[in-house]
Write a protein that binds this DNA or RNA. Structure first.
Length: 474
DNA sequence: TCTGGGGTCCTAGGACCC
DNA sequence: TCTGGGGTCCTAGGACCC
């Protein structure tokens, strides 16, 4: 265990937050998620499992222990997801191409991921953390914040939280059958996360309240989350390298350099001002599937087939989670790595393979792919679950006499769907046309179980829908 | 034959409405 | 009436994170 930032108690005015654990709201800066109301105790914990994927492999395969292990894509265009500490000695790093990792460390074991095993280990850790505090915010399979102000502790004194964190690390080791974790403790998410990085692997770092700024000042600006290569380069050109230098730049100048939201964020984080709450259970905003192919694709029919398959995977995941979305986006990376996206938004959410696939195919049609394509992807965003989406259900179902008059099916013509007027029959039963556009018809069903919905979208050449339609009069 | 996959958030311009 | 804005939604692209 180490305690950072001895001495040098800076005189930064800290506005005390009466109840240390209370979920803090955003600061005074309009729209910014950061503000000066920092906790007075080091009650935010950040836990990071060390070299997670590689460690799971070494745990499950004793022959790999003590040896360089690289987990990631093993194909021609694969990259490293995690390198064991033995492999890092040879310069192997996350996000490096597997090709380069092989040349740096040819004798390493190169493995594709066993995500089932990782998910299982992750679940064991997250379950442990949730048994300790209701406020656990996972960031990925191997990382989480824990709000100790909501944990069952006698107080939040430094000695108390430190002993608690040390015990927690040991319990992680037990429930995962030997994995190690690095832990940071601080007065905010930002500081806890910086702290967990200071003593890796298998370490604990506590940043005492009041010492944050002194800790950060000599560090490079890239310690700040959100400062990646592009932002670091902009700052470098302005002569800003360290947090101390960043702290000396006024807000207007920062906004001019990196934009409004980012500028406000950097302004506060450079002063260790971060009152973001630990938020458990965030709702998904999008679902997507993408793939990079070992050789560039040139055959349009093949691309359409691959997109259709991805559309099926996306739609299946949507249905599995009871979600549906209105916006379908395709992603296309050309041979020269230029990346394009095209999207289209429906009148109402869909979880249908046929609808997503059809839209994806149409969107691909807008693009020139003659030079070859290395990546294809499909995503759905604008998510809502059915119950939330069904606004009529919220406000009360439409009464029978408010429903539009039934239109004689023989008068229905494709491409002239009239929302609220036309009635169609599908395998789900009779429904009203709810929205129409871009070759997609959205239907709202009246059933005994769900008087006001559900809503479902179909392509207008979807067999499930069109089988019931009268012949096109044209 | 450098450069994954799953996400989140932000920006900027145009359409459209009041 | 020669000249508005503000708000929201949509689209495309980019930065960033693990």
């Amino acid at each position: 265990m180490s305690v950072s930032g001895t001495g040098d108690h800076d005189t930064r005015p800290v506005r005390a937050c009466g109840q240390p654990g209370r979920a803090a709201t955003s600061g005074t800066v309009g729209g910014s998620r950061y503000g000066p109301r920092v906790r007075t105790s080091a009650s935010v914990l950040h836990l990071d499992l060390d070299a997670f994927f590689a460690s799971v492999e070494q745990r499950d395969k004793p022959s790999l222990r003590g040896k360089p292990v690289v987990v990631g894509g093993v194909g021609g265009r694969g990259v490293v997801a995690t390198a064991s500490y033995e492999a890092r000695k040879y310069g192997v790093r996350s996000a490096m191409s597997t090709r380069e990792a092989r040349s740096r460390c040819p004798h390493a074991a190169f493995l594709t991921g066993r995500f089932h095993a990782y998910r299982e280990a992750s679940l064991a850790v997250m379950t442990l953390l949730r048994s300790v505090s209701p406020l656990v915010e996972p960031l990925s399979l191997d990382e989480a914040f824990v709000d100790l102000a909501q944990a069952d502790l006698p107080d939040l004194e430094l000695v108390t939280v430190t002993a608690f964190a040390e015990e927690l690390r040991q319990r992680v080791h037990q429930v995962t059958d030997g994995l190690t974790a690095s832990v940071g403790l601080g007065t905010s998410k930002f500081i806890a996360k910086v702290a967990s990085d200071l003593d890796k692997p298998d370490g604990l770092t506590v940043v005492p309240p009041g010492t944050e700024v002194a800790l950060l000042r000599p560090m490079h600006v890239t310690v700040i989350p959100g400062v990646g290569p592009a932002t670091a380069e902009r700052l470098r050109r302005a002569g800003i390298h360290t947090v101390a230098e960043l702290e000396s730049v006024d807000l207007e100048e920062l906004v001019r350099l990196v934009g409004k939201a980012h500028g406000h964020g950097l302004f506060h984080l450079a002063r260790a001002e971060d009152d973001r709450a630990v938020v458990p259970e965030r709702e998904a905003k999008s679902v997507s599937v993408e793939g990079t192919y070992d050789t560039d694709l040139t055959d349009r029919r093949l691309m359409e087939g691959l997109l259709a398959r991805q559309a099926g995977e996306v739609a299946e995941r949507l249905r599995k989670h009871g979600l549906a979305g209105r916006t379908v986006t395709i992603k296309v990376r050309l041979h020269d790595f230029t990346t394009l996206s095209r999207s289209s938004t429906l009148a109402s959410p869909t979880d249908s393979t046929a609808v997503v696939a059809r839209l994806a195919r149409g969107l691909l049609g807008d693009l020139d792919t003659s030079g070859g394509v290395r990546l294809l992807g499909v995503g759905v965003s604008g998510l809502a679950d059915w119950i939330q989406e069904d606004l009529f259900g919220e406000t009360g179902a439409q009464e029978e006499d408010e429903l539009p008059e039934v239109v004689d099916l023989t008068s229905v013509r494709r491409r002239t769907w009239a929302p609220g007027m036309d009635v169609v029959h599908t395998s789900m039963g009779r429904g009203w046309v709810w929205g129409a556009g871009r070759g997609v018809v959205t239907v709202r069903f009246e059933t005994a179980e769900t008087p006001a919905g559900p809503v479902r979208s179909y392509a207008d050449d979807d067999p499930e829908l069109s089988a019931w339609l009268p012949p096109d009069p044209e």
